[in-house]
């Protein structure tokens, strides 16, 4: 079994035993290459009442290499409007690129993205699109 599979299995077992942090739920983990989780931002934010889905894709190098993570954009889900999120669901987050560390986990990524959204207190329409997104997409 690949290291990635073994690691993901532990994460899955952990999620099932211990649950996930508030606002984060496992939607599906049918294999060890693609998982879906949902993220809700708690408290008073511009995303109140919204639920977003994150798609995680893992290659055999996980957790040495970061998972590919993006928001699901389909009939049921859309991407949050946020300076670091493209409308197609692409997320511009250092933790998924240069700042990835192999001791991080799926849940840790969800929590970071959740707090990234939570920190967005202003109406998204006045938010600038992150200037570095245009030239340096890391996911």
């Amino acid at each position: 079994m690949a290291v990635s599979t073994r690691r993901l299995q532990k994460e899955l077992a952990d999620i099932k035993k211990e649950g996930t942090p508030v606002g984060i739920e496992l939607l599906s983990a049918d294999d060890f290459s693609t998982w879906y989780l949902t993220v809700e931002v708690l408290g008073e934010t511009v995303y109140q009442g919204e639920k977003f889905a994150l798609k995680f894709r893992f290659d055999g190098q996980y957790p040495i290499s970061a998972p590919a993570v993006q928001f699901v954009v389909d009939g049921s889900y859309h991407a949050p409007i946020h300076p670091h999120v493209y409308s197609n669901g692409h997320i511009c987050a250092s933790i998924l690129g240069s700042e990835w560390s192999p001791v991080l986990s799926v849940v840790a990524v969800c929590v970071t993205i959740q707090s990234m959204l939570a920190s967005c207190k202003v109406c998204p329409s006045v938010h600038p699109i992150c200037p570095s997104c245009a030239c340096q997409c890391l996911v």
């Binding site: 511009c92 690129g97 707090s115």
Partner: peptide, 9 residues
Amino acid sequence: DGDEVRDPG
């Protein structure tokens, strides 16, 4: 990437 003031997260 995208280290921008208003996103402490």
